[in-house]
Design a binder for these strands. Structure first.
Length: 257
DNA sequence: CTTAATGTTGTCTG
DNA sequence: CCAGACAACATTAA
């Protein structure tokens, strides 16, 4: 579930914790990561929250904590989720999947709910490995991220999913953005024209704003058609289904040809 | 029963 | 060096 939009919702959920001090952390293999002794997050006071792409960052007085929700993770503050209607929402109430719990000295607590255990909490994550955030990327940065003008054979969608080049887009958003921009996700990214990069840039912004208003990454025009036998919501043509950049990709062969 | 799933990382291969 | 394929993680839903 979590792409950039959901992670931003988690950031807003946890932002009121600025000023709080973490008193105790319990859970498996996450922050404590098998380290001997006290969890390195204990005793830290949160000074700010940030987000780069899908990585939620808690700045503290001594370290930065990096919260990554993976594919099925969600964060709860005092038992409350940032969403009511998530794909995994019914399961969020299931205590079985609480993998980590951090208590504050004031009694508040943050929990990580993560059925598939793909989430990670790290201490002082390497932020330099992430490209510019998709919500604020400039046209020039996008052109660079796509490698326009280079000889790289890599597909457009694979570039959009590459967190080192653009941070925050996941499988659903990447498909939705290509659809809205009328661009074939399988096209060579480096071959996009200046005009096409401009259109793509505009659609990244528009799509993030529109879906942000609707509350998440799964509200796109393509969402309901992302099934075998799905048809283009605009022209009714059978959608093409293939793997690009290692992810299942749906596109309209007519409108994105 | 089988398949795929909104993510990342490492390894292997061409 | 580059890109793609694939496994691994663990669980659910179609």
């Amino acid at each position: 579930m979590p792409e950039l939009l959901e992670v931003e919702a988690y950031r807003r959920l946890l932002d009121p914790l600025v000023g709080a001090t973490i008193s105790r952390v319990e859970g498996d293999h996450l922050v404590c990561g098998g380290a001997v002794g006290r969890c390195p997050a204990e005793g830290l006071t949160i000074t700010a929250t940030r987000r780069i792409g899908k990585l939620l960052l808690l700045d503290t007085d001594h370290h930065v904590l990096g919260l990554h929700a993976g594919m099925t993770g969600s964060f709860l503050l005092d038992g409350v989720s940032a969403f009511d209607a998530l794909r995994y929402a019914p399961a969020v109430a299931d205590r079985r999947f609480i993998r980590l719990r951090a208590e504050m000295t004031d009694g508040r607590c943050v929990e990580l709910h993560d059925p598939r255990r793909l989430a990670r909490v790290t201490v002082d994550p390497d932020e330099s490995r992430l490209g510019p955030d998709a919500t604020t990327i400039t046209v020039a940065e996008l052109r660079r991220a796509l490698g326009v003008g280079s000889t790289s054979p890599t597909a457009l969608k694979a570039r959009l999913l590459d967190q080192a080049r653009i941070a925050g887009l996941g499988n659903l958003l990447a498909d939705e953005i290509c659809f809205q921009a009328h661009l074939d996700p399988g096209r060579r990214a480096a071959a996009l024209s200046g005009e096409e990069v401009t259109v793509l840039h505009r659609q990244i912004g528009k799509t993030l704003r529109a879906l942000g208003r609707r509350g998440g990454s799964d509200g796109g025009a393509l969402q309901d058609a992302r099934v075998r036998g799905g048809v283009c919501p605009r022209c009714g043509t059978a959608l093409e289904r293939r793997t690009i950049g290692g992810r299942t990709t749906f596109s309209c062969p007519v409108e994105q040809g």
